[in-house]
Amino acid sequence: MSSEPVFVLPGDHIDPSLIPSHPKKPVRLGPGLRHVPPSDLLPTLAGQLVTDRQKNAIRVETSNGRYIPRVGELVIGTINKSASEVYFVSLSDYTAPALLPQLSFESATKKTRPILAPGALVYARVTLANKHMDAELECVSASTGKADGLGPLVGGMLFTVSVGMARLLMMPKKAQQGKVVVLDELADAGLQFETATGRNGRLWVDSDSTKTIIVVGRAIQETDQKSLGADEQRKLVKKLIKELS
């Protein structure tokens, strides 16, 4: 199997050799693909076709467009308003809000639950995502009852990046696979900062120094908009650090 990326357009024919065929597991279709009975697969988005032989899954990945929630993904949302039981959280502009039950925070009870003002940020996991329903979120692991880093994000600054960039940033080995070295480079240059990335194309950065936050935000956004390679990213970081001092 060649490792060359395969690009598809909506309605393209997908080569059957690309479709994973695990003997036992059923084929799992990700976003951007539609099953046409009895056995055809049609792409509905333009992008890179990605297959995962182990999970027997296939999907189309795009780096543009608005975020569509999927179960299990980590997102950064903005509280819109609070209702009696839930918070309405907006994941992207001009879309229907997602629901975040007020009790799904770490050690939240009817009496002690976090009070979030409209405009506050939360780091949350998508628990329910159906096509025609509002998505649902949680800030606590349902099995362990621990927050695992989820919950309200206080202070810092939120930057908007493309959905594709957010995906690259969240890869476990982003330097090798995604060719994103900009954050590592910034850290090596001696800047101290904290980040959280949401799959909905949001990047939260916090630091003691205002300048550091601006530099980190600019580095990521510029890398994203100009789709810089690893070497260019290093150059960019050097330039920004120079400006800083």
Partner: peptide, 27 residues
């Protein structure tokens, strides 16, 4: 009518803080 997008609290406070220090987000 879709709601007009509004900046979050963090964005508000940080941007204003930066401006009061004479800094802008795009440097």
């Amino acid at each position: 009518m879709p709601r007009e997008a509004e900046p979050s609290l963090s964005e508000r406070t940080f941007t204003l803080q930066a401006i009061s220090e004479g800094l802008r987000l795009d440097s």
